[in-house]
């Protein structure tokens, strides 16, 4: 039971990192990023490849994951930030699917659909069991804390003020002599780098990655998390991610109480449960649990 809880906690903290990145993109700047999983995928594969076939220390993989995911965001920013919101959403969704197709087809690098097995786990030296699980949770917590600190620094700064101004009215920003694209590219890269780090944690935690783990559903799980928690708030990203895990994992136990459901059906029921929660949230608490940015 402890091991199970530790596993849920680790995945939840990885989702918090993803949610913080998306909060930076959407909640603060208004970028409708429907391809967050693409950055997550790049981070996971970078860390996995470097630590297995690359034979690099794990830390190098983490740095590479952040840098590569951040750099991947740069061209997207350049080509699409002048697009309208809805087009940006489509471009990012296309980007994440492109990333998935690339890791599926480039077998020489990613081993295709068979994926990359045997990714070293963090703190293997401590042995399998509670000590290493706790150490991993400790590192995840520390990285999350650092991300939250960075976030606060950003939000409470002239930079943060400007990205919120862009979210509220981009044309007025242009009229005042500031180029919104410059800010949006940086925001996009920062949030993507966070997602890349989340991907590295994921790869080293699960120990085995395949392209199918990086479907658009992951992006929308993160969206659900920030919508349930409260858009544009750091606390919203954290609470929303924890809530998402509660729904995803809690619905797992539904099988014990609901009769006539096979394990395969259960997967669909879980997604249905999260969808229902999202519908109820948008109906009865559209600002999310923690309230959104409109409440200051």
């Amino acid at each position: 039971m402890e091991a199970y809880l530790a596993a849920i906690a680790a995945i939840a903290l990885i989702y918090v990192l993803l949610s913080l990145g998306l909060t930076l993109h959407y909640g603060l700047t208004g970028l409708i990023n429907f391809g967050h999983v693409g950055f997550f995928c790049i981070g996971a594969y970078a860390a996995a490849i470097l630590s297995t076939t690359g034979g690099m220390p794990i830390v190098v993989g983490f740095v590479a994951a952040a840098v590569l995911a951040g750099l991947a965001a740069w061209p997207i920013g350049l080509v699409s930030l002048r697009l309208r919101d809805d087009y940006f959403a489509i471009v990012t969704l296309g980007f994440s699917e492109t990333v998935r197709l690339v890791v599926t087809s480039e077998r020489w690098l990613t081993n295709g659909v068979q994926g990359i097995p045997g990714i070293p786990r963090l703190f293997e030296g401590l042995g399998v069991g509670m000590p290493s699980a706790l150490a991993i949770l400790g590192v995840l917590l520390a990285v999350n804390a650092a991300a939250v600190w960075l976030f606060f620094r950003l939000v409470k700064s002239p930079f943060g003020r400007m990205i919120e101004a862009i979210r509220d009215n981009e044309e007025a920003v242009r009229a005042l002599g500031k180029d919104p694209a410059r800010f949006k590219i940086r925001v996009l890269m920062l949030g993507a780098a966070l997602a890349g780090i989340a991907g590295a944690f994921y790869a080293h935690y699960i120990g085995y990655i395949v392209p199918d783990q990086f479907i658009p559903l992951v992006t929308f799980y993160v969206w659900m998390a920030i919508i349930m928690g409260g858009v544009g708030r750091i606390s919203g990203a954290i609470v929303g991610s924890l809530l998402l895990m509660l729904f995803l994992e809690g619905s797992r136990f539904l099988r014990d109480v609901v009769p006539f459901i096979s394990a395969v059906d259960m997967a669909s029921v879980r997604i249905g449960a999260v969808g229902l929660a999202l519908v109820l949230f948008t109906l009865y608490r559209p600002q999310g649990l923690m309230g959104d940015y409109t409440r200051r």
Binding site: P158, D168, A175, G177, K178, R296
Partner: peptide
């Protein structure tokens, strides 16, 4: 086209040119 969720003061602060705090 006010920045609706920023205060009046923040709206004006955002308009000040050449702020080094607006670069990372």
């Amino acid at each position: 086209r006010e920045f609706a969720h920023l205060t009046v003061r923040e709206n004006l602060m955002a308009a000040v040119p050449g702020q080094s705090g607006e670069t990372l």
